[in-house]
Design a protein around this nucleic acid. Structure first.
Lengths: 241, 241, 241, 241
DNA sequence: AATGAATGAGCCTTCATTCAT
DNA sequence: GATGAATGAAGGCTCATTCAT
């Protein structure tokens, strides 16, 4: 009996690993509902019942994928911080954006992670709470601290919040998406272009930061903040799509 | 199902209208694949075969919903332009952002439209081509023109493109989404807060525009663009999530 | 009121006629189940409910088509007889086969009738009893009489029955059918070829008849089964060219 | 459903076999479109999804049935040839017809095959090409060779073709069909009657063959081919159902 | 008299899941 | 432990028929 059996537990864990790998790629490509269990198993070279066996059910496999993603994102978070060590606060911000974009748009093994997250934002699953708490919030807090320091304001200040949101929005929006593919088909993602985009985002963010810097820091407001006001008087028709 | 039985005389095209209405809401909520025909018909108080009769099939109904959305978006596009008429170019930009946000975040009848568009960006259907050509491109072109003029550059200049993308990214990111709901549960969407956000986005955008303005315009580049370069020398580990 | 109404009863009967016409063609092409009521109504330029209104339901329309077909077949039966009047019995048989094939294979208005009958033989409906009694049996009886006389046997004799069946089988088998279309794609149906085929069928049938002719007619051999040989030697005088 | 529960150990491929068996019977009885997947599964004691699992879809099951039929027909083809080995060409023809009729009309397992083929002739499916190429053409070619040799003509000669078609037509027409059932309800199919019919068909065919035999064989053409012409002078009304 | 709209049954197919080796 | 087979619940769609003008 034992003689005829094939590779022991090794095969077991190997199948499990291949399942998670295939599932990660497919879930990222087409979302939880867009992928069938059979498809995952076929790609992983496993039996249909393997998912049920290893992960109880489809959602169990998905959660495992999410856990893997969170783990990887935590590593990235550390890298984001580490890369900026030793530089000025502005440099830390620039580095954060640059590295973030590289992870986000790079062709590397990690790109599926953010695709998966985009999917969670469109169709949240129970896994989203975990993702937010473990992976996203730490980064947001780090960025808050940077921007807050640059602005001379509390990290919880509304203006800081909005700047941080804006930076993330711009970065996420750079991800390949069918709308921009149609609007600008020639969009390039070479490392060189990536750096250009990162520099652009950092530049605009820093310009905004300077414009909103607290006077207490010894800078006089350049007026940008106030210049928006006059528009408020303009009568704008609301809510009539 | 509906306690108040519907007017018997309202038969003509009334069912069709209710189907489109229910479908718009449900498709926006859960996407094309996330909604069943039976569900739409139940909500609309119609028979399962009604969709086939009026729209040939599920996709036909979806396309009708999309057409309705595009129509509404075109109206909004006109409003975006009209609201800025008479003001300076900067004012036009501020007004554009403000009105756009109002449409995007308003509780009004039109909010489903942008939810639908977000869905298209995650899971494109054949309808996306139509949406991009009829509804999105015109707005992007208008914004390109504004920003290009403010920067003293061609509307097709890469920096203009990135600024326009950034503005749209920030606005779209303001939409209610499960991640920000978890990060900042207290997010407010009163008209007053809307205006604050709009002013913020405009302020940052204008600060960025000034920082990138072409020297030909008589302004000296403040160096922000170049200041990002030194970071490039920083060694950044790539692709290791 | 009356002023605004369109063409009176004339339109009614006209619609009915068009329905029967379209139904006849479509039923013949694709069978009872292969055609939808909507399709018939579309072809006839009538409303979906017209079939229900004029014929109670789909089967009612089909029966009407069958009645029309039977009527036409009765006319043809008369023509089959009439065409042979005045000739010898052999000539009557040749004429029967020739005219039958013309009706069966001709491109004329009547071809649909036999296509419909083929369908009934594959998927009988309640209409088949009517068809057999009203249209088929008379022809078979006529052919029995001819062959019986030529063979010097009773029209109910088994050999007569088989010969009659064989003649009909050969004729029906000439109808366009997907198998022969694949076996011999170049099959021609010009009037000239039709006549050739008819002559062939008649010739073979008459050869068989002579081989099976009753001894009373002047032949000694009654051993039909074994006696295939003697027939070969028989000199059969035909009309001299 | 089936009172005698099936053996538990018989799971392996047993369901698949029962599905093909039930499908063969039902498809032969009522055609591809006339049978529902649910019905087949009910008859086979299987789940609705079993067809999808084993054959991908309804057409896949149908094709499997067709393949089975073709296989059986090939066996029959060999039997048709083998049975005639050693005899004269005429004997080979007689044997062919006799064995063919036995397969065609026998109550055995194979009768459904020809019923299925009749269906294909009425409503062709993509499977027909396969049937014609694999099962029908070889038989036709064999029969062509026999008849051609007996007639002293090429197997592709038009007269040979028509004789072969006629033989097949007569045989096929013997199959139970609703029209002849109504015309001659007392039709018998005992082996004895089968042989009688086979002899009849062979006798008529051989009589026709002799009548059309090429003069090169030492026979003078009896003029049959030309003798049919005079009839052409008879005025026959065309195309008037 | 005649129509556009509406109905409900039923069909094929898909899918996640579980069973029985 | 791991697999091929089997399951039942939907899902989208079609169709003949009927309803309400």
């Amino acid at each position: 009996m034992t003689g005829a059996s094939r590779a022991p537990a090794a095969s077991d864990q190997e199948t499990r690993r291949r399942l998670v790998e295939a599932a990660a790629r497919l879930f990222a490509e087409r979302g939880f509902r867009g992928v069938t269990v059979r498809e995952i198993c076929r790609e992983a070279g496993a039996n249909v019942a393997a998912v049920n066996y290893h992960f109880r059910n489809k959602m169990g496999l998905y959660l495992e994928v999410v856990r893997t993603a969170i783990e990887a994102m935590r590593d990235t978070s550390h890298a984001l911080r580490a890369a900026g060590q030793g530089g000025s606060t502005e440099d830390k911000l620039r580095v954060y954006i640059r590295v973030y974009l590289q992870r986000l748009l790079g062709q590397g093994r990690a790109s599926w992670i953010h695709a998966l997250m985009q999917r969670e934002m469109a169709d949240p699953t129970p896994a989203l709470d975990l993702i937010v708490d473990e992976a996203i919030r730490p980064r947001v807090d780090y960025l808050r601290a940077l921007v807050g320091e640059l602005m001379g304001r509390s990290p919880r200040d509304g203006r800081v919040t909005r700047l941080v949101a804006g930076i993330h929005a711009e970065c996420l929006f750079c991800q390949p998406n069918p709308v921009t593919a149609r609007l600008a088909p020639a969009f390039r993602r070479s490392p060189r272009h990536l750096d250009e985009i990162a520099d652009h985002i950092a530049l605009v963010a820093l310009a905004g930061i300077r414009a909103l810097r607290a006077p207490a820091r010894g800078r006089t407001d350049d007026g940008a903040g106030r210049s928006a006001r006059p528009v408020a008087r303009t009568r704008i028709p609301r809510r009539d799509p």
